Simulated assay, not measured.
Amino acid sequence: MREAAQQILGKGMHLHRPAAQPTMRDINPPPPNAAPSTPEQEAAHARAQAPNPATHPAEFAQDMLNRMGIKLDLQANLDRAIDLGSLHHAPASEPLPEGAQFIRGSYSNHAGMRNYKLYIPSSYHGQAMPLLVMLHGCTQNPDDFAAGTQMNQVAEEMGCFVVYPEQPANANHSKCWNWFNAIDQQRGQGEPSIIAGIAQQIIETYPVNERQVYVAGLSAGGAMAVIVGTLYPELFAAVGVHSGLPFASAQDLPSALTAMKRGVNKAAKAGNGSQPIIVFHGDSDTTVNPRNGEQVMAQRLHHHRGARPSVQSGAVPNGYSYTQTTHTTADGTPLGEHWVVHGAGHAWSGGSSSGSYTDAKGPDASREMLRFFRTVS
């Protein structure tokens, strides 16, 4: 709704007015509070009473709507949209390192079209690099997710491409990836095919190291990362999940809400998805039950019954404590890591307040994910 108002105020609307006519002036102007008596005075009075677009943009927009005969309470609708969280303000863009780029792109196939943003680190000079696909959570966008996770900064240090597909409001009102739809849990269909297609497009455009392509996400994006990794194991070498859910944990919106609140009664087998996985979840998450993190790990380890767990604890200075469980094969090959952040809610651990849904008091999930990915490929 704010965007609609801005269009009315700015370039989105061009009012064509007739050429200005000479103004007739009364040599004996009426008293200040006198009612206008001539057409010219009435027009001048109306202009004087109209809200100033520079100082009262909302009132000016409402006045314009009223003059056009559009019956819409702009402020009421704007307040409602804000309350619903459907309006999101992108954070101020942080300056990029010299030589780095954060560019826009798009991809389309039979399932639809999605825009994305691609981070190219300053160290890129034509050499092969890993690629990480980052899937944002509900109400977020690529700029917000990049700012909050600080993944571009970590990728700058480690030399990695990062692509952020964008879920638009016309695909889901809250910009959530539709992880709970049956069509979006199938290879070659729906959103998984688009996300995989974006990764493939980057691979075809840049010299990506195809053995080092990863997918990660937060919340709905975390659930979709599990789905995409499961459906395209030949494309993605490892998966990162933050506050997400197991593969095929819901078939519709009611079952999705149940899974988020309680976990899944019986998680489906994760198909061919046997790649290494790293999972972060706050044990005080009231949006997605922490049981889901346990089930994501159990689902993936189903393919590796001989996995050996190793548990260690730690704490962030002036922050949360955490428990890290590492699963390996008998020969020490890493299969997965499960980080439980004690006291953390539904937020990206170790993130920056410049983005939404972050909590700086936890261990740095972005850095740990990229570290884990490098160890498994």
Rank of each mutant, 00 (worst) to 15 (best):
A223D: 02
A4I: 10
S274G: 08
G221E: 12
H281L: 04
H304S: 06
P276R: 14
S108R: 05
T328R: 11
E210S: 02
P363L: 08
G355F: 11
G351T: 03
A330V: 04
L84C: 05
Q127T: 01
T230H: 09
Q201P: 09
P22C: 00
D364E: 10
D73W: 01
N178R: 08
G85A: 00
L301V: 05
H338L: 11
T139D: 06
N172F: 02
H327C: 05
H302V: 05
Q75P: 00
P233W: 05
M224G: 05
Q200V: 09
N181Y: 09
A237H: 01
S243Q: 08
S321N: 10
G112N: 07
A35Q: 15
G362P: 04
M64H: 02
D79C: 05
I120N: 06
M260A: 12
R291T: 15
L65S: 10
F247E: 02
A259I: 08
R67H: 07
E98W: 00
R67K: 15
T149D: 08
T375Y: 05
A81G: 03
Q275R: 07
V215Y: 07
A199S: 06
R47L: 15
Y320D: 06
G345V: 01
D331H: 15
P192A: 07
Q62H: 07
Q299L: 10
V264C: 07
E98A: 13
G197Y: 01
I277S: 09
H56L: 10
G229C: 13
R374H: 15
V163G: 08
E204C: 12
H110E: 12
W179H: 03
I103Y: 00
T205A: 14
G99A: 08
N152S: 13
I27Q: 12
F60P: 08
T38Y: 02
H45A: 10
N170T: 08
F180G: 01
D83T: 13
M129T: 11
Q324D: 06
G314R: 02
E42W: 06
T287L: 11
W177M: 07
G12M: 11
L218S: 11
Q251Y: 15
P192D: 04
W339I: 03
A256I: 13
V316E: 09
P22S: 09
A267Y: 02
G282K: 03
T230G: 07
E294M: 12
Q140G: 03
